[in-house]
Write a protein that binds this DNA or RNA. Structure first.
Length: 327
DNA sequence: ATAGCGCCCTGGTGGC
DNA sequence: TGCCACCAGGGCGCTA
């Protein structure tokens, strides 16, 4: 399932090719994927628009759009010129993602406007949330169809940005800057930025008596964690998923903070975790499933102490942990 | 504040 | 072989 590392991996691949591209047509093979506006209004606002950038906040992917822009976009990239999606110099040759690069969400839409004083702000943001099985593929002209395609943006250079979703939980919608700002405010800090500290994590959990696992899945407290990376972070931090937040010491919060950052950074380095459905922007699986220590390893020995890893349900979610290492 | 549900949705799995 | 119940779960909305 796409969590922060998978969305960030997709963002990096798409960012190599989409900025500057103009949308030539849209198709909605499954209109249920579109939250708002209605398909006709959606097409009217998206067709002809330029994609200014590819951004991420938590598990949301954001494409700021400029409608009917005549002037060059920042960087002067023209669609199909230098940034085309030909395999030779394009998608396959994309630079490997670097987890130690500058903080990943510094491009948050709300900051971007103020920072570089772009000549015109985006007219719309196309927001995508992939939920469980959603994938975004950038395909060459004439590429064979992808199964479970729910939406397609055809670009002026003939490439297609395809939104595919086996279980059809994933959604896309258009938002204005105010809505993006509200979304940004509602979400907790980005765990890989300097805004996320052990003190801030402790403060977010202050006064909470809930279980660690559901709290870490709460996007309003820490943004971007899902089931896989929560289980992994709790294992690395040696904390039991059903510990209550009010029993954690300052040292526990420091370990948890470090563990969250470590497992997310590793996930990005490995271009995501592909247990079943996740694929990157050119259809490639991630490598992180080979690195996980507890997730879906119930019945197998703990990599640290050889105790059998257990699977329980916490807050309705399958939860994997080592009963000896995690207290 | 928190827990626990159901909802959305479909392919894969296991039982018979 | 075929059928069917069941499972997976992110985010949301609802109830207790």
């Amino acid at each position: 399932m796409p969590e922060l590392p998978e969305v960030e991996t997709t963002r990096r691949h798409l960012a190599e090719h989409l900025p500057g591209a103009r949308v030539a047509a849209v198709a909605l093979p499954d209109p249920r994927a579109l939250l708002r506006p209605d398909p006709a209004a959606f097409a009217a606002r998206v067709v002809g628009a330029r994609i200014l950038a590819v951004e991420r906040r938590a598990k949301y992917l954001l494409l700021p759009l400029a409608r009917g822009a005549i002037e060059a976009v920042p960087g002067g990239i023209e669609p199909g010129v230098g940034a085309g999606c030909t395999p030779a110099r394009g998608l396959q040759a994309a630079a490997p993602a670097r987890a130690d690069a500058s903080p990943v969400s510094e491009t948050a839409a709300t900051h971007r406007l103020a920072r570089n004083g772009r000549p015109r702000p985006p007219d719309d943001y196309l927001i995508v949330h992939r939920r469980m099985t959603g994938n975004l593929f950038l395909r060459e002209p004439g590429a064979p169809p992808d199964a479970h395609t729910v939406a397609v943006l055809s670009l002026a250079d003939g490439c297609e940005l395809r939104f595919c979703d086996l279980r059809r939980f994933a959604k896309l919608w258009l938002a204005d800057a105010a809505e993006v700002a509200a979304l940004d405010r509602a979400l907790g800090p980005e765990p890989l930025t300097r805004h996320f500290t052990a003190e801030r994590l402790a403060a977010a959990f202050e006064g909470r008596r809930g279980l660690l696992k559901p709290l870490l899945l709460n996007q309003n407290l820490v943004a971007g964690l899902g089931n896989i990376y929560v289980d992994e972070a709790l294992f690395v931090a040696r904390l039991h998923p059903t510990r209550t937040a009010d029993t954690l010491t300052a040292a526990d919060f420091r370990r948890l903070h470090r563990a969250i950052r470590a497992v997310l950074a590793q996930g990005i380095r490995n271009e995501g975790t592909s247990f079943r459905d996740y694929r990157g922007a050119v259809g490639q699986p991630g490598r992180n499933q080979m690195m996980v220590e507890v997730f879906q390893r119930d019945g197998k020995p703990c990599p640290r102490c050889r105790t059998t890893i257990l699977k329980i349900r916490v807050g309705g979610r399958g939860t994997h942990y080592c009963p000896r290492c995690q207290r």
